[in-house]
Amino acid sequence: MITWRRLGEADFPQVGEWLSQPHVARWWNHETSPEAVARDFGPAARGEEASEDLFVLLDGRPIGLIQRCRFADYPEYEAELKAAEVAVPDGAMTLDYLIGEPVLTGRGHGAELIRAIVAATWTDHPGSTTIIVPVHTANRPSWRALEKAGLHRVAEASLEPDNPIDDRAHYVYRIDRPIDPLSDPAAR
């Protein structure tokens, strides 16, 4: 069973280890020193930043990380998507994720995690309308996990890559909040 909790400072060594794994480092391109991890993940862990950094567990065992945030809290990111002609509705959120344990990749845990966090987002963030996730076109495992989790490719966009060795080619995936037939007269 996949669960998560807010990332804490005690988790930073594990996050640093995951970020140094080749399958993660390729796409996250993140410094892995204890100081860099504390610098970049500390503000969210302390609640000083709008991003939710969530430590992911599989049957109680740490396996990865998911970040969830509202585009409205990161206007530069939202503006970059809009400049690429991607519709970003009010209330839209985004995700970033990793399965840090190499032996657990390719087993469907990423899609399971994404499905679970999408479902939780509708409850945790009642004002959220949509989840939009850009992913580099070459990161096939990531975009396949999004597809298996029910997100749909809605655009191709030229966006700044996380890793400077990559070009700007991204796919954009989206899922909208399900319509509740009891509260939507048009659905009745």
Rank of each mutant, 00 (worst) to 15 (best):
L95C: 10
L65A: 09
T130D: 09
L104T: 05
A138D: 12
G110V: 13
A79K: 14
Y74N: 07
E156L: 02
N163R: 08
A169T: 04
A155C: 07
D124A: 13
A157H: 01
Y74M: 10
T3L: 05
D180S: 00
E156M: 04
R115Y: 12
E49N: 07
Q14D: 14
W18K: 03
D180R: 02
H30M: 08
G106C: 08
G8P: 08
K82N: 00
R188W: 13
Y173T: 12
L95S: 05
E78Y: 01
P13R: 04
E85I: 00
R188P: 06
C69I: 08
V86T: 05
R168C: 03
G47I: 07
M1P: 14
E80A: 07
A111M: 02
P134E: 02
R140I: 13
I131G: 10
Q67P: 00
F55M: 04
R61C: 02
D167G: 11
I131T: 14
E52S: 07
I117R: 07
L95I: 14
A50C: 05
A92F: 14
D176I: 00
T121E: 14
A72D: 04
V15W: 03
T129H: 02
I175N: 04
V135A: 06
A155F: 09
L19V: 06
R168K: 04
M1L: 15
L54M: 09
E35D: 14
P178T: 12
W143R: 07
V135M: 02
G60P: 11
D11N: 10
A116K: 13
R174F: 13
E85K: 03
M93Q: 11
S142I: 04
P178Y: 10
R61H: 02
H152P: 07
R70L: 09
T130P: 03
L159P: 10
Y77H: 15
D73N: 09
L182E: 11
D59H: 03
A187S: 14
G100S: 06
G110W: 08
S128R: 06
P164V: 12
E52L: 09
P62A: 09
I2M: 14
P181Y: 07
A138R: 11
Y173P: 15
P89T: 14
Q21G: 06
V24N: 05
A120F: 00
V133R: 01
V86P: 06
I66C: 12
D96P: 04
Y97R: 08
D180Q: 08
N139H: 15
D180F: 00
I117V: 15
D59V: 00
T130C: 09
W122P: 11
T94H: 14
T121M: 13
V172Q: 02
A50Q: 06
A120T: 02
L19A: 11
A149R: 00
G91R: 07
E17C: 13
E35N: 10
A84H: 06
A111Y: 00
F12N: 11
L57D: 04
N139M: 13
L57N: 01
V56D: 01
E156Y: 01
L7W: 00
G100H: 05
I131P: 11
Y97F: 13
Q14R: 12
F41Q: 06
P134V: 04
E85T: 03
P102K: 00
F12H: 13
M1C: 15
E101A: 00
K82A: 04
R68H: 06
L95T: 11
A92Y: 09
